[in-house]
Amino acid sequence: MTSFLELENVAKKFGGLTAVRDVSFTLSKGEIVGLLGPNGSGKTTLLNMISGANKVTSGKISLNGVSIDSLRPDQIVNKGVSRTFQLVRILPSMTVEENVICGLAFRKMPVWGAKAAIIAREKLEIVGLKDKASLPGHSLNYIDSKRLELARALAADPELLLLDEWLSGLTPEELEAGIELIRSIETTGISILIVEHIMSAIRALCPRCVVMNSGEIIADGSTGTVLQDDAVSAAYLGGAPCCMLTISLCSMTYILL
């Protein structure tokens, strides 16, 4: 397998805080890899650097052998990378279908007009939202918003899909269906980097996983082996109180907002 996505000594500093330090790993074409780690370990920041939302402080990121670390997000989309967001983002003033059409209209090979509507319906069918195509974006519930976000990401026709906790917050049945959905996307040949806290989902989906702690990779290998690693359990257990605190803080902020 040739390396498709390649990160070399990537680091990100926010002022004095080092969110990601010296991260190197590669992802092959068509591979699905889990990215794990306690809260604040730098997973989202890493995705942000790949998608161009954050610029790397140092290090290199390349896709298909071409450096992408100095590109803007819109240029990176055109290189074949699309993503979903940890805090779901939907275009609230547009309908569900228009949300997906937007994903089609500005990609590398843009589709526009009647043809876009047809493809948008196909994408909505894949994620199970076909019946809600004409609803306003802001009226969707949590799981449907996540589905829509995924449909929009797929509309960009990605070679690499970045999912940031796409499976979190689902009911057990929804989780089951979500895992199936991601698996079906993977079989179409799209490479997937999936950030997730839910171990069962990682076990079900990813033969390989990468674990981060305080901005560094502490394990990278086959999922079964990695999850038994002492350092990994220490990171998770050691991080537990902090993790609980973050979760409660997050949910409080969410409720307040």
Binding site: N78, S82, R83, F106, R107
Partner: peptide, 10 residues
């Protein structure tokens, strides 16, 4: 609607 989405759809 959302500049972050805008940038990330190209």
């Amino acid at each position: 609607d959302d500049e972050v989405i805008a940038a990330h759809i190209g």
